[in-house]
Design a protein around this nucleic acid. Structure first.
Lengths: 210, 210, 210, 210
DNA sequence: AATGAATGAGGATTCATTCAT
DNA sequence: AATGAATGAATCCTCATTCAT
C-alpha cells in the first residue's frame, strides 16, 4: 500500500540576525536557485547546495530544519515579491483616466513578469513546484487568498457590480492567467507581453459587462 | 562543482504485442497515474508502482527501462491525446458561421480541459512535471512544435494576414494560455471555462486586427 | 556473516546428439568465448549469451543447467585440448637424438601456446578464471593431476632419477611455467616463445642434474 | 548486440587525513582482502565488506566511490609493494661478486613471492583479477611499464649489450615469469622457489649471451 | 521440444540528517 | 557556534532461472 506522503515542518529554524547569518542564508538560497534553474528539482540535494554555496552542510541545517524548508523559503520569497507588487498598485490614481486605462496599467505592472529571463525561468519552475510538492500547498493557498482578496478590492473600486464571491473567483482565475506569462518561452517574449495584456484585460472585463 | 544531471534513456524497452503485455503496460501506467495524482511525483517509486499495479517489479522493468521512462510514457500519452483533439478540429466547417463563431468553438473544443476533475488534476501535474524534469523537455518541445504548426494552419485558414513566423509565435503563446485552465482549481470551475474562452479569443483576435 | 560460496552442479544437462543440438551448443560456447574475450567475466550474463548466439534463452538452459556450466564447459574444452597435445608427444622418438633435443622438442610442442592471438587471450582469461571461480577448481585439479602424471612418465622415460613424488611436484611446477606464455602480451611475442623454451628447459633440467 | 562494458571511475573519493579515516580505509581494504581470499571475487559484495569491516555501508562509500574502486585500491597497494621491492634492489652491490651471483640474488629478492601463504593466495587472485576486470587494465599496464623500465636499467648495469627495445621486451617477459611463482600451489612450495630461480636466470641469461 | 515473458531475491548506491569534536 | 564525517533506510535496477504456452 502506498503510504501518505507526510508533510514536514518548514519554518526556518531561527531568524538570522547577525550579518554573516543573513549572508549565509542568502548564499544558500541563491545556490539553490541556481541549481534548480540548472538541473531541476528532482536531482537537487542538500550536500550539493552546501557545496555550491560554499558553506558546510552542518551550517545549512543551522538555518533550515530540512531540505523542504529551503525550497519553501524560495517560494515564499518569490510570492512575497509578487504580492508586494500587487499591494503597491495605485488603482485609484489610474481610475481617474478611466477604467480601460486602469485595467491596462494593472495588467502591465501587476501581472507582467520580470524582464530578466533567469527570473522568469526560475519563476516557472517554482510555480510548477507548488503543484508537485504538497509541502508548498499552504504557501500557494495563502497566496491565492491574498490575490483573490486584492482582486475583490481593486475590482470593486473600479466599479464592478459582481458579488464578492464571484469577484473572488475571478481574482483566482486572473492569478492563473498571470502564470501564463511565466510559462511563455524566451523566443516569443516581446510579443507575449502584449498578448498577456490582452488576455488579462479580456478576462477582467467580464466583471464590468454582465 | 555541480555536475550536469545526465539525461536517461526513456524509450519503452519493447513494444508489447501480446494482449497481456498491453494490459500490463496499461496496468503500470494507470497505477502510476493514480499514485501521482494521490501523492505527487516526488515520492513516486518503482516498487510502489509495481505493488499498486499488482505486478512484480521485474516485470515493470520488462516494459520500461527505468522509472523516468514510465513518467515519460504518461506525458507522451497525455500530449498525444491533446494533439489528437487539435488535429480533429474542423476549422473550415465552423468558419462558415463566421470568424467569431469559429474562434469560440475552437476555444471550446481544442483548448478546453477535460470535464473530469481527476484528469485535470493529473494534467496539471504532468504539465508541471515537464518544467521540472529535464527528461521530459524533448516531449514538451515536440508538442510545442506541433501546436505552433497547427495554429499557423488554422489561423491562416481563418484569414489572418500575419507572417508565418508571427503566427507560430502566437500559436506557442496560445498553448501557454491553454495551460491556464489546467492550473485553475476546482472551486472556480464552471466560470473558469468561460473566462478561458474569453482569454483565448482575446489573444487569437490580435492576429486578425493588425 | 559472510556465507560460504556454494558450488553448483556443472554437468551439461544432456549430451546433445542431433546435429542441430551440437551446433547450438557450439553457438553458445562460441558466443560466450567472444563475450568473455571482449568484456571479461564479470559482466557476462546468460541473456546476453543467448542473444549473441542467436538462440533463445530457454534453449540455452536445455543444454546447460546453469551459467557456471557454460564457463565450465569452456574451460573443459580448453584443458582437453592441452592434454591431447601432451598425450600425443612422442618422448621416446625424440630421446633417440639425446636428452637435450627431447627437452627442446617437448618445450616446443607441449608447452608452446597457440599461434593465434585470440586463443592466447582467451586462454589467459580462462586460466585466470580457474583461480577466481571455485566451481572450476575441480577441473583445474584434475588437469594438474593429469599433467603431473604425464610429467612423471616422460621424465622417468628420459632418465631422471628423482622420486615419483618429486617428479610430480616438478610436473606441477612446469604446468605453472607453461602458463607464463599465455600471460605474455602480443608485443613481445616472437621472442617470448624462445624465452619460454629456455625457461622450461632450465626448470626441467633440474631433475637430471641432482 | 553486446554493448561495451563501461569502465567506472576508480579513484578513491577522498584522501583520508584524520587518523580514524586512515584506519577505516584500512579496515575496508583488509576486510575485502579476507573476503576475496576466502570466497573469491565473484561473490564479493559491498554490504558484506561493510559488515566484515565493522563499518556502516554508507561509510564505505565515503571512502570509495564504488565497489570496483575497492578492488582497484587493493591491486594498487599490491603492485606498489612489488615495485618497491624492485626499486630497492642493489644491483651494483651484487655485481661485485659477479653476474651470476647478481642474477641469483635478484631472482631471490625481487621475483620471489612472499613467504606467507595467505599473501601468495591473495596475490594470485589479484593477478588473475587484472586479466578478468577491464577496470584494472590501466594499473596492470602501468606496472608493466615500470617493471620493463626497471629491467632495462638493471640489465644494462649488469652489462647486457642488447638494445633498449629488446631489453624492454625481455623485462616484460620476466614479469610474466615471475607470476609463475604466484600461481604455484602451496604443496610444491619449498622446491618451487628454487625452480623459479632457475627459470628466471635462464631467461635473463639470454641477454648476456647473444 | 522450443520459446521468451515473467519472476523477485539480491546487490549497488544515494542522501537527508545528525552529532561528536 | 561551526563543522563535515558518519549513518543506514530507502530505492533503483539486474539477471539467473523457470514454466506456461
Amino acid at each position: 500500500m502506498a503510504k501518505e506522503a507526510p508533510t514536514r515542518r518548514v519554518e526556518p529554524r531561527k531568524l538570522p540576525s547577525r550579518k554573516s547569518s543573513r549572508e549565509r542564508v542568502d548564499a544558500i538560497l541563491n545556490a539553490t536557485r541556481e541549481l534548480i534553474a540548472k538541473d531541476g528539482l528532482e536531482t537537487l540535494n542538500t550536500n550539493q547546495i552546501a557545496e555550491h554555496a560554499g558553506i558546510p552542510i552542518g551550517s545549512v541545517y543551522q538555518y533550515f530544519p530540512n531540505k523542504q524548508a529551503i525550497v519553501y523559503a524560495l517560494v515564499q520569497d518569490y510570492l512575497t515579491e509578487l504580492e508586494a507588487r500587487i499591494e503597491a498598485f495605485p488603482m485609484e490614481k489610474h481610475l481617474k483616466k478611466g477604467l480601460n486605462h486602469a485595467l491596462k496599467m494593472m495588467s502591465r505592472t501587476v501581472t507582467a513578469p520580470s524582464t530578466f529571463a533567469y527570473e522568469r525561468k526560475l519563476g516557472r519552475i517554482l510555480l510548477s513546484a507548488m503543484d508537485l510538492y504538497p509541502e508548498l500547498r499552504e504557501l500557494s493557498d495563502a497566496h491565492v487568498e491574498f490575490c483573490a482578496d486584492s482582486a475583490v478590492q481593486h475590482l470593486q473600486l473600479a466599479g464592478s457590480k459582481w458579488s464578492v464571491e464571484r469577484l473572488r473567483k475571478l481574482g483566482r482565475y486572473i492569478l492563473e492567467v498571470r502564470r501564463t506569462i511565466y510559462y511563455a518561452p524566451e523566443e516569443i517574449m516581446p510579443d507575449a507581453i502584449r498578448w498577456q495584456e490582452a488576455a488579462t484585460i479580456a478576462v477582467i472585463s467580464q466583471c464590468f459587462e454582465d
